[in-house]
Design a binder for these strands. Structure first.
Lengths: 210, 210
DNA sequence: AAGCTAATAGTGGAAAACCCCTATATTTCT
DNA sequence: AGAAATATAGGGGTTTTCCACTATTAGCTT
């Protein structure tokens, strides 16, 4: 029996996935979580074999950060990232936090089952829509590129910027000064070598910061 | 028995929803579709009682457009929009295309069942996280805004705006003055009853002006 | 202890956006 | 022919960005 914890902020989707998993006789859903913080406490108290972790869960603590936290405290659990996006930036991030699996929400149901079995028996299972050579390159460059990736705060700024909020509106939402927002923005631009706002927005859109 | 068609591009989520629905004895899932075009053909051939329609389905034909098309050809079917976003612009759009229901993916499972029953028996079911007065205003303004369709030029301005270009950059691309761009923008905002840039951008993103 | 990074906040000036108007030529609808 | 919609452009004033700096604090790393 593989004991699974399901993490997704959308109740409907989470319940759906749980039902889907309950079809399999050797899989048991032992718990559910709706955000990153809950995921961490549930992981510790339930000690599941596998965690299905949605990437874009709310309340600051995203799926990657939660994954990192959990793996820091529990070395035995296997974590599969679950997302709608097959953007390279996400996959890179998943590799960086050493997630054991990565599958897309528009996979067939069988893929989910396969992934659970694969990571449970110690394998790495990345089912993504990008060429194998590129995947290998990503794994090879592991460790290098977590320095060219945005911090959690920067990601949040990026997201809100893409959504068209002004610096002042972003500042209000995050309880910081609009000047700080400005600074984060220019740091992001420097990190990603972007030279104007349009490029920033388009990078954000391409990498699904929405 | 209420015959339901489920439309969502993410296979995993779709299967999950189907399983969720199959728990209810008076609901029968008669079909599934993964994009707008498929939704339309399935709707016509299966003649379901209720369609659960995800908003952000790919391949150009989004959930709203598909809904409009289907309702144009079949007056009896009830359509519930299903989305992650409770943005006003989305809800407005749902009202404009005369969807019978609108629920969020992070609703409880029971909400889905309630919604299906409500629309099946002829009621309107909008379960959204915004105040009632605002909802009423949105419904009151209905009819005004289905003629509020953007002109070709306005759509172009919208697209470039969403992509983060400044007024001057847009002006250069279209060989017009930046003042004209400004005017188009404010016309768009007036037409769509949007009060700031963030709403404009989010409307644009929601409606795939990218 | 020294150094690094992330997050915070500021100054000050130039550029751009935003807002509320007016105005004109063209096309399209009635 | 007259009215309405579309696309164009500008004036003038207020607010916001953008840019190039400086600076402080907290939390790591070595």
């Amino acid at each position: 029996m593989i004991r699974v914890l399901v993490v997704d902020d959308h109740v409907l989707i989470r319940k759906g996935i749980v039902l889907l998993l309950e079809n399999y006789k050797d899989v048991e859903v032992v718990g559910e979580a709706g955000d990153g913080a809950e995921a961490i406490t549930q992981a510790i108290s339930l000690d599941p074999d596998v965690i299905l972790m949605d990437v874009s869960i709310p309340n600051g603590l995203d799926g990657f950060t939660a994954t990192q936290e959990i793996l820091k405290q529990m070395s035995n659990v296997k974590i599969i990232m679950l997302t709608m996006h097959n953007e390279v930036a996400y996959i890179q991030k998943a590799i960086a936090v050493e997630a054991h699996g990565y599958i897309l929400k528009n996979s067939q149901g069988g893929v989910l089952y396969e992934a659970i079995h694969a990571v449970y028996s110690g394998r790495i299972y990345y089912n993504v829509g990008i060429p194998k050579e590129q995947m290998n390159k990503l794994f090879a460059h592991k460790g290098q590129e977590d320095k060219c990736i945005l911090t959690v705060r920067e990601q949040e700024i990026m997201r809100l910027t893409v959504l068209g909020y002004t610096n002042v509106q972003i500042a209000e939402q995050l309880y910081i000064s609009s000047k700080t927002v400005e600074n984060h923005k220019s740091n992001i631009m420097q990190k990603l070598d972007l030279s104007n706002k349009a490029e920033l927005i388009q990078y954000g859109l391409a990498n699904n910061y929405m």
